[in-house]
């Protein structure tokens, strides 16, 4: 788990352009007008499990605490429920900021080690991109292999039950015109990189 290291913070360790990048990629210029009221943190159903509350994430983004923010669990725990965004008195799109941070973290390849959620996001997208459909059995199997292999034996009874009910297909599903889909997604990806 990432945390603020217990030491003094020197300005040299911070990234003064971080806030600008996140504002651009989240499309939320009002991020700068955050008054640190904490509504987002108290509205968030998951802040209980977060290392930094959403309010603190905003403050840290603004002040350029890039390393700490990208390594935090908070951005991955965000369930995209938009509760924060609905209530924020400054109408800051916090959920979109969380997305922007997730994208940034994936691009930079930084996230908490052995933390399943970023891996799940990646696998989810890979599967859909390749086959046009999500085959949950494949994604889950690969997720466990990559992040928590030791827990596979414990899950075997559940797997067996699902298999017997036809809920755990062994063959990956797919759509017909996969190339067409891939062409579409490539356009989207180029746009994202350009942003």
């Amino acid at each position: 788990m990432a945390s603020l290291e217990p030491r003094i913070h020197y300005e040299a360790d911070l990234d003064p352009s971080f806030a600008r990048e996140i504002i651009a990629s989240s499309g939320s210029p009002s991020l700068m007008s955050c008054i640190q009221c904490g509504t987002c943190s108290s509205a968030c159903p998951l802040s209980l499990y977060m290392d930094y509350t959403p309010r603190r994430i905003i403050a840290m983004v603004r002040e350029g605490f890039k390393k700490e923010v990208l390594r935090s669990r908070t951005i991955w725990l965000c369930a995209s429920c938009y509760a924060c965004t609905v209530e924020c008195p400054k109408q800051i799109r916090i959920t979109d900021v969380m997305y922007a941070l997730k994208r940034y973290a994936i691009r930079e390849g930084v996230h908490p080690p052995r933390f399943p959620i970023p891996v799940l996001a990646r696998l989810f997208y890979d599967t859909v991109r390749r086959r046009g459909r999500l085959t949950e059995s494949w994604v889950v199997a690969r997720l466990y292999l990559q992040t928590m292999p030791l827990r596979i034996p414990g899950m075997s009874t559940l797997g067996w039950k699902l298999l017997r009910r036809g809920r755990f297909p062994l063959l990956p599903e797919g759509i017909r015109d996969r190339r067409g889909l891939q062409r579409v997604l490539r356009v989207v990806e180029r746009r994202e990189v350009a942003r």
């Binding site: 300005e11 403050a59 002040e63």
Partner: peptide, 15 residues
């Protein structure tokens, strides 16, 4: 300037 940034939760030195 030495200050606790109580919003971020860190003691900072800002030149």
């Amino acid at each position: 300037i030495r200050v606790e940034d109580t919003l971020v939760g860190a003691v900072r030195r800002i030149p």
